[in-house]
C-alpha cells in the first residue's frame, strides 16, 4: 500500500498539487484520472521519487519515503516498476537489452538466468520473436508491451503506469488494460495507473482518484461511477452528449 499525506507541489508560481491525501491499495488497480494538465504525471513522479514534493509525505507500507537515504531508496526502487507515458525505451538497445536492463543494474544473475527471465517476461506480455528488434522497428502497442515487460521483469511490488493505453486503438488499449489487471491480481501488487481513458475507468477501476485543479475531487470504485452525482466526475467521464445519454439510459435500466 502507498499513502500520501498533504502532498503539495509547485513549479515556481504554478501550483500543480495542492494537498493530496490518498491511498493506493495492494492487489488493486488504482487509477488516477483527470484532464490533461491536471497533474497526474507530476503526482506519479512524486510517488516514485523522481520529483520532490514541495511539502507533504509519502509512505510505502509504513516507511516514509522522504526520510530514506540513497541506499534505502535504491532498495525500494528494486521493488518499483514504471511504464512511462512515451514508453521511454532506450533507442540504442534491442528489445531484449531493454527488458534486461533492470536485471543488469540490480542483480548478479548469470547471463543465462537473465535471458530466461527476459523471455518469460516477454511471453507474459505476449511478445515473442522480437528480442533482437530495436524499439524503432516495433509498433506503438508493442513498445508499450516492452515497456511493461521492462517494468515487471524485476517482479516488483509496486507498478506505476503513466497512460498505458494512450495513442493505441481501442482494442489494443483494452488488451493492455487486461494485461496490467492480470499482473496486478497474479502477483498481488500495488498498481497505480494514470489515465483519461473512460474504458479503463469502467473496466479496471478498483480505486479511482479524480484529480481536479490540484485537489482530489472524487474517490471511489468503478461500480460507484455511474451513480455518483459528483458533477466534476460526470463532466469528465461522460464528456459528450452521447455518453450522457448512455448514462441516463443505464441509470433508468438499473
Amino acid at each position: 500500500m502507498i499513502r500520501t499525506e498533504e502532498l503539495y507541489k509547485s513549479f515556481g508560481e504554478t501550483e500543480v498539487l495542492k494537498g493530496i491525501s490518498t491511498e493506493f491499495y495492494q492487489g488493486k488497480t488504482n487509477l488516477i484520472i483527470g484532464r490533461s494538465g491536471a497533474g497526474k504525471t507530476v503526482l506519479l513522479k512524486c510517488l516514485v521519487g523522481l520529483i520532490r514534493p514541495t511539502q507533504g509525505k509519502i509512505f510505502y507500507s509504513d516507511t516514509a519515503f522522504s526520510q530514506l537515504d540513497k541506499k534505502q531508496i535504491k532498495a525500494i526502487r528494486m521493488e518499483v516498476g514504471m511504464l512511462f507515458q512515451g514508453s521511454a525505451l532506450f533507442d540504442s538497445m534491442t528489445v531484449e537489452e531493454n527488458v534486461r536492463f533492470p536485471l543488469d543494474m540490480f542483480t548478479n544473475m548469470t547471463r543465462k538466468e537473465k535471458l530466461n527471465r527476459v523471455n518469460e517476461t516477454l511471453e507474459r506480455v505476449e511478445l515473442t520473436g522480437v528480442n533482437d528488434r530495436y524499439p524503432s522497428e516495433t509498433s506503438g502497442g508493442m513498445q508499450k508491451r516492452v515497456g511493461i515487460a521492462r517494468a515487471i521483469v524485476m517482479q516488483p511490488k509496486y507498478l506505476f503506469c503513466d497512460e498505458p493505453n494512450s495513442g493505441l486503438d481501442p482494442k489494443t488499449a483494452i488488451l493492455i488494460d487486461e494485461l496490467i489487471l492480470d499482473i496486478t491480481k497474479d502477483q498481488n501488487i500495488t498498481t497505480v495507473i494514470n489515465t483519461h481513458d473512460m474504458n479503463s475507468v469502467m473496466e479496471i477501476g478498483d480505486n479511482i482518484i479524480l484529480l481536479h485543479h490540484g485537489h482530489v475531487a472524487w474517490r471511489g470504485t468503478n461500480a460507484e461511477v455511474l451513480e455518483s452525482d459528483n458533477e466534476i466526475l460526470q463532466n469528465f467521464i461522460f464528456a459528450s452528449p452521447f455518453l450522457q445519454k448512455l448514462r441516463k439510459n443505464a441509470l433508468e435500466n438499473l
Partner: peptide
C-alpha cells in the same frame, strides 16, 4: 527518469 527508476 526511466534509468533513475531502475537504480542507475
Amino acid at each position: 527518469d526511466a534509468m533513475e527508476i531502475m537504480g542507475v
